[in-house]
Amino acid sequence: GAIRTDFILSAEIVVITLGTVASATLAQRVTVLVGIALLMTVGVYGLVAGIVKLDDLGLRLQRSASALLRKVGMGLLHTAPKLMKTLSVVGTAAMFMVGGGIMLHGWPALGHAVEAYAGTLGGFAGGLLNAAAGAGLGVIAGAIVLAVVSGVQRLRR
């Protein structure tokens, strides 16, 4: 699940990046994309790999001669599954919010309407409305894609 979520978020980041440098030269676009790819691979996925390996570290520390290290290891073994579940939920929410936000920008009339209404609210409430609109649109799009994929799978059986 984490790999699928990371893949989708990576695709969304590429779309955002390309949208940001759309008017740049081809060389500049390639340079920016390569830079973002390196940053994401080393930074974010390096961190994700470390989090995935927390339980291995906990198991290794649990086998230590030191009582303190064994307690730290037990704590990691106890905490790692909860952390992974939390990151899974947060990652899925982020995927819907970012994907829905991209769709809002790609649908100018709806995007401008949401931004205009959010502007009347201002500050935190306006930002929250923008995020909720993106998340809502992302959930709707996700439900449609899920329905289509499920339908195609049923037909193939």
Rank of each mutant, 00 (worst) to 15 (best):
1 G>K: 10
3 I>M: 08
4 R>L: 15
5 T>K: 01
5 T>N: 09
7 F>P: 04
10 S>D: 13
13 I>C: 09
15 V>Y: 13
16 I>S: 08
17 T>R: 01
18 L>R: 09
21 V>T: 04
25 T>V: 02
26 L>W: 08
26 L>T: 12
28 Q>I: 09
28 Q>D: 12
29 R>Y: 00
35 G>E: 03
38 L>M: 10
38 L>P: 05
40 M>N: 09
41 T>K: 11
48 V>C: 01
49 A>M: 07
53 K>D: 15
53 K>Q: 15
58 G>R: 08
59 L>T: 15
59 L>S: 15
62 Q>W: 04
66 S>N: 05
66 S>P: 00
67 A>G: 06
67 A>K: 10
71 K>L: 13
73 G>Q: 01
80 A>S: 15
80 A>Q: 14
82 K>D: 03
84 M>A: 12
87 L>W: 02
87 L>V: 05
89 V>G: 01
89 V>Q: 00
91 G>I: 06
93 A>V: 15
100 G>E: 01
101 G>S: 11
108 P>T: 13
108 P>Y: 05
109 A>L: 07
111 G>C: 04
112 H>K: 11
113 A>M: 10
117 Y>D: 09
120 T>D: 02
125 A>D: 13
129 L>C: 01
136 G>Y: 07
138 G>S: 04
139 V>E: 07
148 V>H: 00
148 V>Q: 01
152 V>Q: 09
154 R>S: 03
155 L>Y: 07
156 R>M: 09
157 R>E: 15
